[in-house]
């Protein structure tokens, strides 16, 4: 059970998408998200679809991984589709019932919003499915680097995230241990009212919290004794390589952005 949470989203692999520089993936995703919401014209939606299909095909991650946890998203997509379907009153009337009237504009708008959301979710999942959390953190740190000039503690932020990621599995393991220990003492986490179940978790959270504080102190001493003094004067073991594939991906997304702008504002 824990293993699922521990691995998180990442699906190991060596596909072209896996091997892209995390910076390239982050920038591409950002461009994709922004210009997806600019896209209205069938041409630019078509290009977006094409990019998604291409990325999906190249990534070679089994469909089931996308579907995991998709239920909630599906509800949102269907809900927004219906909302637009019923609320938009444009174009010719398709059919009328005593309760609602459906317009062609409503169908188009509903489909447009639905497709946008779907593409968005697919591309965002693709990022977390094909990039290790470590690479993601590295990518973010590197992209945030310009912000260091305006006083943003970029190293510290990235380091915090990376320590948090490192300790999530450890804390989960510990939580499981405490839960088992409390169960052995007769605690019941699965029966009773919601309030009762929530209350049953208090004796889990308190020791977990106390132990985390001890852990933090130990870790600080260990880091200090290994010469950690913040980001100043530090060299890096991990570096990111920008390859030709990354440039190509970026060019494709730039072309898409231009298509989106052109079809939206100039046509």
């Amino acid at each position: 059970m824990l293993d699922h949470i521990i691995i998180g989203q990442y699906v190991p692999g060596h596909s072209k998408v896996h091997r892209l520089d995390p910076r390239a993936k982050l920038i591409c995703l950002m461009l994709f998200m922004v210009f997806l919401f600019v896209s209205r014209h069938p041409l630019s939606i078509g290009v977006a679809l094409l990019i998604a299909v291409l990325a999906f095909g190249l990534a070679n991650v089994p469909l089931t991984f996308y579907l995991r946890g998709m239920r909630f998203i599906a509800i949102i997509i269907i809900f927004t589709f219906l909302l637009h379907l019923f609320m938009t009153k444009e174009g010719p009337v398709l059919f009328t019932t005593p309760i609602v009237t459906i317009y062609l504009g409503g169908v188009l708008e509903g489909v447009l919003v639905g497709v946008r959301l779907l593409l968005l979710v697919i591309m965002a999942s693709l990022l977390t499915l094909t990039t290790t959390p470590v690479d993601l953190t590295d990518g973010m740190e590197s992209l945030m680097l310009p912000l260091k000039k305006v006083g943003m503690p970029t190293h510290e932020l990235a380091f915090m995230i990376s320590i948090a990621l490192r300790f999530i599995p450890t804390l989960l393991e510990e939580a499981m241990k405490i839960i088992k220990a409390q169960m052995a003492r007769g605690a019941n986490f699965t029966q009773g009212s919601i309030w009762k179940r929530v209350k049953a978790f208090v004796p889990v959270l308190v020791p977990l919290f106390v132990q985390s504080l001890n852990r933090a102190e130990d870790l600080a001493i260990a880091m200090e004794s290994r010469g950690y003094e913040g980001g100043e004067g530090r060299t890096k073991f991990r570096i990111l390589y920008w390859k030709r594939m990354d440039t190509i991906a970026l060019v494709i997304l730039t072309l898409y952005s231009m298509t989106a702008i052109f079809t939206r504002f100039l046509m």
Binding site: R166, T170, L219, A222, Y228, T235
Partner: peptide, 22 residues
């Protein structure tokens, strides 16, 4: 559990070296 900082073995071995600017 309370002295390994980095996400992988090799990153952790490198941690002290990074700190001292090697």
């Amino acid at each position: 559990d309370n002295q390994l900082v980095a996400p992988t073995v090799e990153d952790d071995v490198a941690f002290g070296l990074e700190n001292t600017g090697v």
